[in-house]
Design a protein around this nucleic acid. Structure first.
Lengths: 204, 204
DNA sequence: AAAAATCTACCTACTAAATGGTTGGCAACG
DNA sequence: CGTTGCCAACCATTTAGTAGGTAGATTTTT
């Protein structure tokens, strides 16, 4: 099943991208159907590689999962510091943060870490820790941003920034979960607007 | 592997509970690890029955899933009308609604329909419809309750009730997802309080 | 610079265990 | 007697993971 000699030249230049391609396709699969919902066979088919070759890059499925979370978290971290650098006020920053989730709704893909969090007990131990850290990092970033916002008057005073941060993550994760089901980016935008508006100080 | 004759008396009276027990244990499994994350073997072990017997009650896994959603939705529907009957004001009703989710955080169990929604594409077709209906029903109930609240002055005017309803479900689903991971009912309560407070009319 | 050794990326071909599901039977109950 | 509830023993397929190998690139030795 295949000529035997596979002496084809390997496209030149595109040598070292297989790993990245695996991560990309695996992320799409997990976000679309959950961690337990995809197999190495699915991934192999998506990438156009044989199943066994995946094990060369990621010995076990848990290894792949961990790499997935790491890459995802890294991308998010970059986006977060870009937001903080480019936008000055609290509500503006939260709105930009919320728009990161919007992409998922538009592509019909959930949050990677939400998909993993749902599996809970059944998830490989170490992955649970990575996922928890993902959320903790976001909460810390948001608490800092909201705290700054309260200090400069762009965010309403009163609730503890840490509490506000949890509210923000919860609302966005939940909205992504639900509005993906309904394939309704508009509804997501509505919820985001409402959320951001609730952070503004009551004028007068 | 077993004496062959299984002539034991079957506990008397507790004859027809197997189906209910299957639903109960299956719900726990799905809410704890996702739909793709549990098997008929797991369920058989949890109930203390042989795998094949499950198929007698639920021919396919999709049948089981559908029955699960139906039972879950029915229980919720009962709780919702009880809330509406027993509590007069908008915020109070929403708070009671939110407390329905709190149980999940305390038991370490997510929302059944959130677990199913995450699987998205991979989910048996008909289940997707059932799950969507579950959310749509909640949104309708909430929109009605919030509309009433606006009419009687217990809920702030301004945002469309349908929009507020989406915000409420999103926040609670997201908070359940996240706070279950952190095993933090207190944090859930905090988010719920913040959510309910945001619904109150600005005094003065 | 040529030859030898090692490494990288992938393959085919397997395996043991688990998956959802089927068949046919048996016993108890109404 | 027929229905209901359960079971043992299957089944085909899929699962994650392994074994062993091959071709080409890279590095090391001569």
């Amino acid at each position: 099943m295949r000529p035997t000699g596979r002496t084809f030249a390997r496209a030149r230049g595109a040598m070292r991208d297989t790993r990245a391609e695996l991560l990309l396709q695996a992320e799409t699969l997990v976000r679309g159907r959950g961690y337990a919902g995809f197999s190495y066979a699915d991934l192999a088919a998506a990438v156009g590689i044989r199943k066994a070759s995946i094990h060369h890059h990621f010995p076990t499925k848990a290894d792949l999962g961990a790499a997935l979370v790491e890459a995802y978290a890294t991308r998010y971290a970059a986006a977060l510091s870009e937001i903080r650098a480019g936008i000055p006020d609290g509500p503006g920053r939260i709105e930009a943060y919320g728009r990161l989730y919007l992409g998922g709704v538009e592509q019909g893909l959930g949050c990677l870490c939400a998909a993993l969090a749902i599996e809970g007990e059944a998830l490989p131990e170490r992955l649970r820790g990575d996922v928890a850290r993902f959320f903790a990092d976001h909460l810390a970033w948001l608490a800092a941003v909201l705290g700054e916002g309260q200090a400069d008057g762009s965010v309403r005073l009163g609730p503890d920034p840490a509490l506000l941060a949890r509210h923000v993550v919860a609302t966005l994760e939940g909205a992504l979960l639900m509005e993906r089901l309904f394939a309704s980016p508009e509804a997501f935008r509505g919820t985001l607007a409402l959320l951001v508006d609730g952070l503004r100080p009551a004028d007068r």
